[in-house]
Design a protein around this nucleic acid. Sequence first.
RNA 1: GGCCCGUUGGUCAAGCGGUUAAGACACCGCCCUUUCACGGCGGUAACGGGAGUUCGAUUCUCCCACGGGUCACCA
Length: 497
Amino acid sequence: MELDMQYFEQMEQKIPHGKVRTRFAPSPTGYMHVGNLRTALYTWLIARNAGGTFILRIEDTDQGRLVEGAVDVIYRTMKECGLDHDEGPDVGGPVAPYIQSQRRDTYGKYADLLVSRGGAYYCFCQKTEEPENADPKNVVKHSCSCPLLTEAEVAEKKAAGLPFVVRQKIPTEGTTTFRDASFGEITVENSELDEQVLLKSDGLPTYNFANVIDDHLMGITHVVRGSEYLASAPKYNLLYEGFGWEVPTYVHCSPVMRDAQHKMSKRHGDPSYEDLIREGYLTDAVLNYVALLGWSPRGELAEQEFFSLPELAKAFDISGISKSPAVFDIQKLRWMNAEYMKKLDPQVFYTMAEPILKKAIQNPAIDLKAVAALVQPRCEILSDIPERIDFLQEVPAYDTELYVHKKSKTTKENSLESLKAVYPVLEALNEWTNEALYATLMALAEKMEVKNSLILWPLRVAVSGKASTPGGATELCAILGKEESLKRIQKAMELLA
RNA sequence: GGCCCGUUGGUCAAGCGGUUAAGACACCGCCCUUUCACGGCGGUAACGGGAGUUCGAUUCUCCCACGGGUCACCA
């Protein structure tokens, strides 16, 4: 077999050296898992922290799983999150192409190279049947006589058009050791390692092979990935050794769990990044939360909870990555999201809330900006808004028991009396602002010699029909306007009578 | 089942041989108050178990238990 050594030389020459280079290499599934997002974030952070290069590579070697438009989801998500890449399919780069399906020839050539170096062999055996139904207690490693085939026999079979795969050759004795940046040194017996397929019969590489080739040819210095690959890492090391290449730094990350024993999964209805955004979470909050889910800052920053992306880039260090799986706590994310919402510039918040407000409130007399200001500190996620403000559109049917409040010492009876006293006073009020309303009602309370709450509680219930509202009685009246407020008080009095 | 990895309160976690074992979310209580919320203050709650090593182990070693990962021509 003839090998084009010049080709390999050319490829080697393209590889950039001397700088940290990381890559996020998703396979296009159509959505971004929270775990994936975290891996992408960490990978980006390692590059940015070191002033290195961040690369986006698409791993689409499984032709049976192609999903329409899935690559766009990746671009959009990365962009939205601010995880910009320096090299990738869309922006190009020195080691293009960045889509694995377009690198098909490369893998084939390197597979041949590895065979010639004794690290792999052509295998003409039949496809392994139904791995899912196999008895896990009785798994057998692949073993066949194909490695014994002479070069002439191989050429003959190939010429005859027999389908074949390329399999990795594993030493029968000894051990293989590799080092992971967070897990440390791990050693396994070579006899435990399977002679895995590197090149499939369709000519495309398996993930295991494509990764090693691409990571090397792209000059990747830090390989960041999920810990599910920890067990196969020794095989990658053998591959690097087989080629005579330098092994990159591995950074394996433990999974994000939905509970103590299950990973987050789309199948179980756990939210993906897009789902969270659709539910009204803020990208920055999600990123902040996810960053701290499995990583924590050291030293001075150990107490800090809020990090912007640049702050994370500055603070990030691999040693802070946790080895054990972390349970995703939506409650804490909600809290963090609420904190981000509160800090938002009111104008920005309004822009985000506007479509929701418009949908919930059709009454043109209501100032949506005022509503936004009221609701901003009182919702944890954007989608909380409708239920908080629906009463502005229409008073919901409510139980008059709402008027009974121990702390305010209100009863249905004294509430009715309060409202009766309030109505004419407000009817006579011309300046319809929160301040004027407040001052007026305070004066009324003083005159009647009752506690503020005896007046304000019934009024708030009367205009909202709710036990809990964003803002107090006078704020609500101010927003509703005089006519609507009086109408609602009138109705409430009828209800109480 | 083999191999690999992990194990600090309900959750995220700090700790890297000597600490009253941080902090955050959640929960509970109190205060503030124009309800709820916000805010302030405080509280409940943890080193999986057993042997070592050591003057001293949450920190180091080993065993066990539990949990996870992996064992595909999927990534």
